[in-house]
Design a protein around this nucleic acid. Sequence first.
DNA 1: TATATAATGAAACCCATG
DNA 2: CATGGGTTTCATTATATA
Length: 599
Amino acid sequence: MGDHAPGDDSENIDWDTEDELEIQNIAPSSCAQLITRDTEAVISNGKASSSAGPSNTKLVEHFLGMGFREQWVTKAIEKNGEGDHESILDTLFAYQALEDPQQGHNSCHPNHLNSPQQQQCVNDDDLSSDYDESLLDDFSESDSWLGSETEDFDSLPEHEKTLKYLVAMGYTEEEASIAMERCPGASIAVLTDFIGAAQNAKTEPVFFEDEKRKNLGENGKLKKRKLYELEAWKRNKQKGPLTEQDEVIRLPNPMTGFGVPSEPSSMVTHRTLPDDAIGPPFFYYENVALAPKGSWDTISRFLYDVEPEFVDSKYFCAAARKRGYVHNLPINNRFCILPLPPRTISDALPLTKRWWPEWDKRTKLNCLQTVIASAKLTERIRKDLEKYSDYVPLDVQKKVIEDCRKWNLVWVGKNKVAPLEPDEVEMLLGFPRNHTRGGGISRTDRYKSLGNSFQVDTVAYHLSVLKDIFPKGINMLSLFSGIGGAEVALHRLGILLNNIVSVEISEANRDIVRSWWEQTNQKGNLVHLPDVQQLNGDQLEQFISSFGGFDLVVGGSPCNNLTGSNRVSRDGLQGDHSSLFYDYFRILDTVKSIMNKQN
DNA sequence: TATATAATGAAACCCATG
DNA sequence: CATGGGTTTCATTATATA
């Protein structure tokens, strides 16, 4: 949920450059190879056992040699176990880019991209064997070059800094210069990927195609084509020697998570959480279920290896909404908020019944999105249908149904279909009528805010177990609050909201929540902050000491770069917006450690 | 400037079939 | 087991309009 709107400043992004870099991001990357080669190919194994011993020092030094601070290294190893180098590196990159934003300033790339890109490249398990070994040696033997030289380093001009950085990482000056020339303004992560890809290009024809395209002048489609070819190539390659790459999270079918009230059959009442995952605080993370492959593996790995619960909200209301939830809540004795919402289109929108043709078999709406169909489309459909008085030919039926499903159209008159009204979307998502209305928000922005929100009944069902645990109310940290789905859910469960820290970038959304807060006569405190990236440990410590800790940390981080609806930048977790997931992790992890210290 | 409008596919999944 | 058809998807961007 949340109007994840670093997007608000994304107009400034140079998409041409970005496109340029897409290919390198996907390409077999240097860091993945470094790690795997150096540790005898510990790939995608989240459960490596940790054993104390001489290897520990070596391991620490290995990561110190990569320029990470010692405290991070120690913590990351502690968190992930010695054996799981991949996860350690994941954690380190997260710490590096998020706890120390300076790192990101080596480039004019959006700085929070640094960690995710590198993280992702570790995820890429394609490891071609013909990698330059010498690079490895240079890398692991290099001293902690960020240590004593830091001051000189900082005073250098930007591109010099980057160059030095790369050389310190073990690349030749020539490699670094070429990469910087080809990828102006790119982050270190991108540049290292580029060099890695260039080295692999000796055996990789697609890369030369890319060169050719650049000279010919290009259009985006061709670029994309190449990107997909490259991915296909990677997939094929993966199938070869690496067969045990099956640790991919699969979506359940039916998508009922640990159980939904309407389908009592598949109800699970018990699970075992990893020790690290157990609260306090409770946490609840949400995102789209149908994310690019590997996204949920990464999310789960960061969130203490908790298995995601995938639930389709069609079991709670009249619209589908396939989402994954990672949380450490109890899962027994859940209950629904009342009254139960209508669960079919005809119950939710009774006025449509009269016009609903019998050949439209839909009983549920598809996912409510952020944009609606054009008037032109509905008008075209009306004209198509008016040609026939009684019987509509099958092919016309098929075409109309296809559009209706794609755009969530409902029947509002003879031969007339229309998109849902904002207040109908509010109702379907479980918000009070007019929740997003007024306060100067435009109609288009209402659709956007609603489309980005939780389905309240679904979330409330999961959070319902908190009612008995916190009879006196709770303190909640709500990240990416959006229009306040979590707040509304808790309130409707009858759980008192004592202290709520709500972080939301969009002022319009903050106004909506503030207004709801006043209208529902809340007695607790509501603190609003704009930006999760600005929320640091000191502030968290203050909040925690002022009201004794958070009981619950909720957040649905941006899905823009994960959802299939995005034709332009479905870049996965390393995307401009979706990488804010790592801030959710960072903040949750900080809260956890502060609260553990107190006990 | 702010808001509304319309055009813009492909990844990843399901499932039946050979 | 592969494969091909069918279905769904918290959106972005350029342009028009007020």
